[in-house]
Design a protein around this nucleic acid. Sequence first.
DNA 1: CTGTTAGCGCCTTCAT
DNA 2: ATGAAGGCGCTAACAG
Lengths: 365, 365
Amino acid sequence: MPADRGQAAGRPTISEVAAEAGVGRATAARTLGGYGYVSPELRERVLAAAAKLGYRTNALARSMSTGVSHTLGVIVADIGNPFFAGVVRGISDTSRARGFDTIVLSTYEDLDEEVAATNVLIDKRVDGVIIASAAVDRGEVAHIRAAMDRGIPVVLVDRAIASLDLDAVVIDNRDAAREAVEMLIAAGHRRVGFVWGPPAAEAPATRRGLLTEASRNLWTDGERLRGYLDALDDARIPFDPELVMVGRKTEERATQEVARMLALPDRMTAVFCTETDAVTGALRALRAAGLSCPRDIALIGFDDSSWAAVMEPPLTMIEQPVHQLGAKAAEVLLDTFEGAEPRREMHTLRSRLVVRSSVAPPPGA
Amino acid sequence: MPADRGQAAGRPTISEVAAEAGVGRATAARTLGGYGYVSPELRERVLAAAAKLGYRTNALARSMSTGVSHTLGVIVADIGNPFFAGVVRGISDTSRARGFDTIVLSTYEDLDEEVAATNVLIDKRVDGVIIASAAVDRGEVAHIRAAMDRGIPVVLVDRAIASLDLDAVVIDNRDAAREAVEMLIAAGHRRVGFVWGPPAAEAPATRRGLLTEASRNLWTDGERLRGYLDALDDARIPFDPELVMVGRKTEERATQEVARMLALPDRMTAVFCTETDAVTGALRALRAAGLSCPRDIALIGFDDSSWAAVMEPPLTMIEQPVHQLGAKAAEVLLDTFEGAEPRREMHTLRSRLVVRSSVAPPPGA
DNA sequence: CTGTTAGCGCCTTCAT
DNA sequence: ATGAAGGCGCTAACAG
């Protein structure tokens, strides 16, 4: 065995502190661990010895014997994405305040990565997991079930999974989308584009086909699509598959698709974008077509930002409570550690439609 | 002792797997841990038993005995900030690919938080630390020294600390700023504003005072300020303290300060912004003043984004290689684990000036 | 109130 | 090639 296995230079242990202080190991452990009773005198001596040696508790060893790691696992699609970065910040702010640290793993929407990430967290013995899962089908949630079976509390964030009966913290995607599209319709628009929908290879011709496709994909996208259809239905505007973008979700494709919708015989006069990249993609298409917003085309999109406010025109956007989303998820999870019974329900946070100037009546009105 | 201390439901240990397979614990440990020699037959039996019981290795226990946690600690100002989110993504992508997970802590530029974060990482026995430190003075780096003294390799990212003799991965802030300001000057501008500088309570009247102030604060800000001054010097344009913003760095204050500079008798005709929020703040001021970019005022800023490209006009911006910044830092750190000698040098990554249309000659030209 | 003792699950020498 | 035994640093019963 190497001389310093697990015991690198300058890493005194409780035993050494005890020796230095001339007390038993348990006494040192008690004062350093902050539990049990210890007389003031000995306490002082232990503290002095610890300070002298520069003692720092070994959280690994502590976790080994307590079975608690004071660490939360977080699984999201992409920590580099401002949306998830905000959620993660919410999670780490509130968990840190309650003594927990976080290990964050990105999956890039790949299910295999998600399974691997879950295993890493299980192996590292995190006390709980918060996950924005890409899983939808009943068959794709085995890894989440595995964690639960091992007694690890799990909370879903951003995306609910119906078949799972877990606490989920999400926003009112469907209502938010409906409200936005309603505003477009109220301004007089009847040709409203939807960018973007489910990543189907081909655009389903029917509304039913589209919804089926949506239910096989990201929960948020499906909800937003439903909100869009809700608004159309309420206004008795027929659904036109030509006006919804499906397929790979990239800014470039959004630009192409919006250009296509703009070129339709019965031209689109308003766009609803479900993500930031969809908004910038749409804006590029407008510019390329020499169209001006809101005179020629109205626009509302998801995910407000400072940029949206300084655009010309200032953009009407949906603001998601990203930080709160993470904070609430962490709270729900941490509460179970304090004995709170998991309520296994959907916690829906409200988004906010920030009205600015990107909506006006359609050209002919 | 509670019956299941550290041994919750459904968490078989190596001993149980060994029993199930009818072999010794060491044999099970060897095959499950992937080390040592084990005959194919026994190997199979162990694997089968492990699969049957749903065995997952306990990384904590492994770390206890090996002294290696396969975890990196990351300390940044704010994981919710897109810049750091990008850096963190770079770090976790490359460390994950090499078998390491990350614990990320935000300090919000608070030194006490930074010290606390460092201690958390020491306690959790991370194998190395990557830090974008807010420390500058020799007196503020004790916590980093403490980590080093405990044998934990440390790599600085985004911000160098001269007094520390560590590997640092940064971008060419000074050159980037100079190049941008040079472009402004080349277009004919002589009244170039700088938003924002060091958070001094009051604007130092002299150039020297400003630099002193800057050296007491964030390294990046100081470098960018130097680049600005470099460009001014080369063009023999006198430095005017009225044209640099100091103090709290918020979007609102940027707006106020730019408004002030715009109202100067000898009006500013170009602005250089060192951060995204400074850019949007400046843009608000322009709009409020009814000025148009680039006709009335030219602008260049740090941190390119999709938004900058769809602005009217499209903005000329400096693109930082955020992902690469993190990736390189992780590489340098991970390499030391494979025995590479830390080179303790500054690794400077190149930024890129993305030229678009926000720069034109000043009004009178 | 304090010290002794026995684990937590794994890795690793040391015999066999 | 395999098994037995000890230790990583800490917590937690238990005895004193």
